[in-house]
Every structure is written in structure tokens, then in C-alpha cells.
Nucleic acid binder design. Sequence first.
DNA 1: TAGAGTTGCGAAAACGTTTTCGTGTTAAGA
DNA 2: TCTTAACACGAAAACGTTTTCGCAACTCTA
Lengths: 352, 352
Amino acid sequence: MKRKITLKQIAKELDVSISTVSKALRNSIEISEDTRQKIQAFAKLYNYRPNNIALSLKNRKTKTIGIIIPEIVHHFFSKVITGIELVANKRGYNVIVGLSNESFDKEVINMQMLANGSIDGFILSIAKETLQQQDYHHFTETINQGMPIVMFDRVVNEIPCDKVIVDDVKGAKEAVEKLITNGCKNIAIITTKDYVSVGRLRTQGYLEALEDHKINAKSSLILKIEDKLMSDDHIDKLENEVEQLFESNKDIDGVFAVNELYAVTAIKVARKLGLKIPNDLQVISFSDGVLSRHSTPSITTISQHGQAIGEKAANLLINRLEAEEVDYDDETEEVYETVVIETNLTERESTK
Amino acid sequence: MKRKITLKQIAKELDVSISTVSKALRNSIEISEDTRQKIQAFAKLYNYRPNNIALSLKNRKTKTIGIIIPEIVHHFFSKVITGIELVANKRGYNVIVGLSNESFDKEVINMQMLANGSIDGFILSIAKETLQQQDYHHFTETINQGMPIVMFDRVVNEIPCDKVIVDDVKGAKEAVEKLITNGCKNIAIITTKDYVSVGRLRTQGYLEALEDHKINAKSSLILKIEDKLMSDDHIDKLENEVEQLFESNKDIDGVFAVNELYAVTAIKVARKLGLKIPNDLQVISFSDGVLSRHSTPSITTISQHGQAIGEKAANLLINRLEAEEVDYDDETEEVYETVVIETNLTERESTK
DNA sequence: TAGAGTTGCGAAAACGTTTTCGTGTTAAGA
DNA sequence: TCTTAACACGAAAACGTTTTCGCAACTCTA
């Protein structure tokens, strides 16, 4: 019922000025021992805490980080959030989350909602629709207004900001090389259409690995899935496409999937067709999820370390925020960093 | 570089007063057509947006909801967030997320960080440690300060607030009845220690179902897992316990698991012991996750509808927030609602 | 005892809004 | 020509802080 107590109320109650109360609570030496004790006791009694909003207004900083991600029901993204929240909290920041649902409009609106003073900076991963439309004005505008951005995973080079990524090419290459080493002769890739940058890069890694080992890539072994099929409603269409892949390439003995769902679908279809894992078919997936660890057989993965990505992104952002205070808008050209988080191969039952 | 533009700057630039600018932008009839147009054009040019923090301070409301959950890397919780974010956004609110990591202290600290003006109300699910310690003072204090709370899933009755829960007893009962109907004679339950309320309630549902069908519950068929084993590090200890369960009860033909991980572990162990699913053993899990849908065999579940829970919780909270405005702290006793979201059985391959 | 220094506190500005209440100017009515 | 009303705008307060500055009332020192 009783609203939170304010400096003004304490001042009135104790018959001193607001300034005195403020100083007393911050242990200023200007205030006599006596009054200081009196005020602090009173404040403690009424459980006084400074109003955050007022502080934000006064200091022109909110100590809050805005996160914009495509979706949250996704192991990778929630791991990243965990990482961000961890260091944010440790460094005295809060975290406010906006979901773009892969939609350009929602991304723009969400950013506008937050950019009006609610937060000090953004950490984000770009929506697929935005990547398709290649319209990045909302990012540049935000940056021009002096609000720093850190991008992770899905990034675009033309935006001047810090970035945290995994080396998709290298990771994919490592996966495919593992398959080759394990004796696979006909390795298929299940990937996304090229406008999804991670899909494109992982496909590139696949091709490079083949090339390095003097294996000719066959286009029939490259299955590029239309993105709409990621949703659970279209799971059977996805299965169909994968089944066709196997049917028309009976000699496939290795699959590299760019995400967990594709991998698990490949395994399901392969089994239906009578293939034994890992004897007839070996599978490696790019991922950081629970599916590969707990499904049967468990799936060998290139893991992305989502939490590490989140931690790094948060540190980059907060470092920049707190550096600004000293640098005080000097005219030195900003220099941005792109941090690559190493992936690593976790072997499980889907490979020999 | 250039900070966001303010009313004051526009006023100065156009040589009018701040009030005039404010009124012009809000289309007040006090302002002449001429100046209004001029000001609006200027504001549009410089992309003026009112500073949210200033508005929050003035209006004494932030249009922001605080979410405190035990963890975010969890399908159920991220689904709930999705639901909250959906209606929050639709109704003009933002969402700020704090993670308790199941720790009492982090829960308290997170709530204190947010309760100092940063948000208008909480939506939360209680940390396990808090449930164990049964110390709820931070909730009551928050409520006493006039900040409404909506609890979901893990709730305690003694806190006066709106609640959104699933009928755990009923859902569990339905699951077990399904197993019975399907011919299972020796149904085991894999659940958590009793201090986790959902574990306790689901165990209760299990017992009720057995009783209703005149089946004697056998304590050897009730496996209560210590909570620490949920983490991925202890996955083998979990497997051991489950294996012991099967070894010492060779006649088990049905398993009801209170979460996905237990179910998937049960299946894994059962297979290792040579049991066929669903012929020798049928499994039903309480869950809303991706594991049950995509693992092989896919798992029949009692689904919790996390998103619906989130939506309902957000609507309850926002309704209360916006009702307060009119009621204006009248002394009518607050009356709180407990909404039960219906679970339902989704049949998959792990049952006949 | 006059001047200087110390001590303890308050007034006011600032952060960026919105809104109430004036107030000066002009137009209309008597 | 005088009063009144309409019109267009500005001053100021308020939201809750922090901080700079000023100023009394002391306490020393010479």
C-alpha cells in the first residue's frame, strides 16, 4: 500500500533538507556524525533505496543492456542470454529482452522502443528477414546516436560495431574433415539457403574440406532447406526433402548438418531406410543444444559455446560503455573488434 | 556522435518555449496550425522521440515488466517468456529478465535491483532454494510496496498474488491412467524430491490414479531424484539410479517421468537392458520440450503450454497494473485470481 | 576582539518530460 | 471606445536524484 519512501519524505520527517539526507546516506563528510547516524537509521528502518529511474535520468545512463534476438525458444540463444546476464549482473547491469521473431519490422520497432533512453547499448543477432532485405538503417541510426551495438552470430560486415562470432567455416571444415578421416566417401550437407550467413559459411567450410582432400563436390549432395521448414509445423516436409536426398543418393555414408534439427531428422530418415548409425552412416551437426546430447544415438557436434559468446559480447559492450565516460566523445576514430570464439568437436555416438 | 535530440534543443532552435514544443508534438489545439507544423516538421527531421526515462519518472510508471525465473536454457521457461513478451509488446510493455539460477540470494538481489523503480510489476517462478528455505519475505515486501506480482508454475499459496499454474495432479493422473488403459501393470514414476512442488503434485497425481484403479502403489516403483542430478555433469549418476530402478523391478512395463530428461534417460536405460519401446515398456513424460518431439522414439507427453501460461500471466499483471490507475488505492480488499491452464496428452511413439 | 578558517547545512540547478495556470495580444460585441 | 472572449504561447512545478555553491555560525589565532 505504502509507496516506496523518497529522499523528500525522509527530509520532511527528520526536518532537514533533501541535500542533507542525500549526503548523509552517501556518507559525505559534510554531514555531522550525529545527523548522519540519525538519517541512516531512519532510512534503514524504512528500507530506503534510491529510485533507479531518477538516477538514470540524472546520470543519463540506465545500466541496462538491450538484447534483441530472433527467438528465445532455442538453445543457442538462451545460452547466449545466460552468458550475457551473467556478466551483466556481475558488472551491475540489467538485461532487457526483445524478440524479433525473425521479422524485420519487429526488430525495428523493438529497437526503437528501447533506444529512447531505456538502455545504454544493444547486443543483438540479426533477424533472417532483415538479412534478406539487407536493410540495416536501424542499426546505423542507433550507432550514430551514440548508442553502441555488439552483434553476435548473425552479423553483417558493413555495420561499424563490435562483433562476436564463431568461425563457421573452420568449424564446418573440421566436421567434414572428421567424416573424411573416419572413412566417409560420399558426404552430404544439409544446410540453409545462402542468405542465412551462417548457412552460407558452413557450406563454404564443407566445400573447402572436400577440396582440400581432392574430393569433388557434387551438387546433388548439397541440400539447401528453405527456411520456413524450420518450424515444427513443416517437420514432415523437411523429412520428405531429406528422404529424397537419401533416395537419390544411395551411397551417402556421411552427413554434415548445419543444425540439430537437420541432424536429428537425417538420423530419423536414415533409420527408416534401414541404415545403421554410425556403421552405415555417420552424422555430425553444428549445434549447442540438448537434442544432440540426449537423443539416441547421441550426435557428434561442433559446439558453438553460446554462453561464452554471450559473456564476451557483454564484456565488449560494457567495456565500451564505461570507456566512453573517460574518452568523453573525443574525435579519435572508433576502432571495433571482431572476436572469434573457437568451436570444438564433441564426439558422440553418431560417428565412429 | 550526436546525442538524441530533446525538447529543449528543439525549443531553442525554433525560438519557442519547451511547453510549446511539447504541446505542438502532442497536437494540442492550444498551438496554432503554423507553429505546430513547423515544430512537427523539425522534430521529424531530427527524428525526435520522447525520452522514456523522463516519461517514466514523470508518470511514475515504466511500462516494463520484470521476469524472474530460475533459468532460461529450458524449453518451458523460454516458452513462457515468449508468451509474456508477446502480450507485453502488444500492450506496450517491455520485458526485463533476471535469472535466479535456482538460488535464493540471486532471486532476492535480482528483485531488489528491479523493484527500485525499474519496473511496474513482476512475473516470476520461484527458485528451488527459496522453496526449500521457505523464506518468502522478499515477495511480501515487494507486494506491500504496491508492486504486483504474478507467479507461475512454482507458486506458494501464502503469497497474496495472482497465479498461473497447470493442474499438475490432474495432468499426472491423466498420464498414468493412459498407461493403465494401455495395459501397464507395473508403472514406475521418476520424480523429484518433494520440496519441488511440481514434483510433489505430480507424484500425488500418480498415486491417485493408481488408487482410483485399485492398484497398490509400491514404494520401490517411486524413484525420487535428488535435484542436483538435473545438471548435465551428473547425467551418469542419473542413469545409474534409473538403471537400479529397472534392475530391481524387472516387471516394470510403464514409466511416468515428471520431466523430459528423466523420460529420455529412462528410455535410454531401458533400451540398454533390451526392452523394446513401446512394446515392453511405455513411457509418458510431463513436458513441453523439443526432446520429446524429436528424439527417437518420440515421447508421449502431458504438455504444459508454456506460452499460454506466459500470455495469461502477462495479461493478469497488466490488467492489474492498469486497473490500479482508476481504482486509485481504494481500500477494498484486493482479490487475487489463480488461473489453471489445462494440460493435454499428446500421443507419440513411446506409448501403444 | 577582529580577522580568518572550519564546520554543518540548505538552496538551486540539472536530467527530459507533461500539464496547469497565467498572461499578453487580438478580435468581437455592446 | 470600452469590455469581454478567444487565441497563442510561456513560466513553473513536478517526478527523485546528486552535486555545486553559498552562507551562517562557530572556533581559533594574533
